[in-house]
C-alpha cells in the first residue's frame, strides 16, 4: 500500500507542477472574469447565467486537464519508458495502475476545489443583485454539481487509464478518450430518443441493439451533469447523488481493474 501511495503522490506532484495545468488555470480564470462581465449584460436570470457559465468553466477546464495532463501522466510513462523505473521496484503492475489512478484522482480533487472556490465568486456577485438570492438559487445544489463534476472527471481519468493500458502511444489513448467522452455525454439523449418510441424515423432493431450496447458499455456522463438543476435552484430527486456514486464506484472500479488486468499481461520491450 505504501508503494501505491508513494506512486500516487509523485503522479500528483508531476501533474500539479505541469506547465499545461497553469495554462488551463489561467484560461479558467479568464472565463470566470468573462462570466462576471457577461452576467452584467443580462437583465434577468443573472444567477442562472452565472451558475451555468461557472459550472461549464469548471467542467471544461477539468476535462482539458484530465484529457491532456491525466492522459500524459500514464501514457508518457510508456512512451518514454519511465515505467521501467517504476515497475522494476517492488510494485506489481496492478499497484502501478491503482497508484496512477489515485494520483490523477488527487489532481482532479485539488483542481476542482481550486476552481470551485474561484467559480463561487461570479455566482456570489450575481446573487448580490437579488434581495433574496436563495429564492432562485441554492448553494447546496451548486456544491453537489461541483462534486458531480469532480466524479465525472475522475471517471474520465479511469477511462483514460483503461485505454492507456493497451495502446502503444499516448496519442491513440488521447483520441480514444475523446471519443469515449463524446459518446458518454450523448448516449443518454440517444437512448431517451430510442425509448420514447415517438420517432418520426423508424429505427431498425439492429440499431436499437447497437444503441443499447453503447449505452451500457460507455460511461453515462450525463448522470454527472446537473447544471440545469443548479442554475434553476431545483431540488434533485431523492437518492440521486447516492445512485450516481454507486454508478461511479462500479464504473471506475471496472475500468481501473480491467486496466490492471491488461497491464499485468503486457510486455515492455
Amino acid at each position: 500500500m505504501r508503494g501505491v501511495l508513494s506512486l500516487a503522490y509523485i503522479t500528483f506532484v508531476e501533474g500539479i507542477r505541469s506547465r499545461a495545468l497553469f495554462g488551463i488555470f489561467i484560461m479558467a480564470l479568464l472565463m470566470f472574469a468573462v462570466t462576471v462581465t457577461l452576467t452584467n449584460l443580462f437583465m434577468r436570470d443573472i444567477v442562472k447565467v452565472a451558475v451555468d457559465l461557472s459550472l461549464a468553466t469548471i467542467s471544461f477546464s477539468g476535462l482539458l486537464m484530465v484529457i491532456f495532463i491525466g492522459n500524459s501522466l500514464l501514457s508518457k510513462d510508456i512512451d518514454k519508458r519511465t515505467i521501467y523505473m517504476v515497475i522494476s521496484r517492488p510494485l506489481s503492475r496492478g499497484q502501478y495502475i491503482w497508484g496512477k489512478f489515485f494520483g490523477i484522482f488527487l489532481l482532479v480533487i485539488a483542481a476542482v476545489i481550486f476552481l470551485g472556490i474561484l467559480s463561487s465568486l461570479p455566482v456570489y456577485f450575481a446573487g448580490l443583485s437579488y434581495e433574496n438570492p436563495e429564492s432562485v438559487f441554492k448553494w447546496s445544489i451548486y456544491f453537489y454539481a461541483i462534486v458531480l463534476i469532480a466524479m465525472k472527471l475522475a471517471l474520465i481519468a479511469s477511462v483514460t487509464i483503461f485505454f492507456s493500458s493497451f495502446t502503444s502511444t499516448s496519442f491513440i489513448s488521447l483520441m480514444l478518450t475523446i471519443a469515449a467522452y463524446i459518446i458518454g455525454t450523448s448516449t443518454e439523449t440517444v437512448k431517451g430518443f430510442l425509448d420514447a418510441k415517438t420517432q418520426v424515423i423508424e429505427i431498425s432493431p439492429l440499431m436499437g441493439y447497437v444503441i443499447n450496447g453503447v449505452y451500457y458499455l460507455f460511461p453515462n456522463l450525463a448522470t454527472f451533469d446537473i447544471k440545469l438543476q443548479a442554475s434553476h435552484g431545483l431540488a434533485l430527486p431523492e437518492g440521486y447523488i447516492l445512485w450516481a456514486m454507486v454508478y461511479w464506484f462500479f464504473y471506475v472500479g471496472l475500468m481501473v481493474s480491467a486496466a490492471a488486468l491488461i497491464m499485468g499481461r503486457r510486455e515492455f520491450p
Binding site: 509523485i10 506532484v13 508531476e14 507542477r17 505541469s18 518514454k80 519508458r81 519511465t82 521501467y84 523505473m85 522494476s88
Partner: peptide, 12 residues
Amino acid sequence: YLPENPYFYDHL
C-alpha cells in the same frame, strides 16, 4: 536496476 538512457519524471 538502471535502465539504458533512463528517463524520469520531469518535475520531480
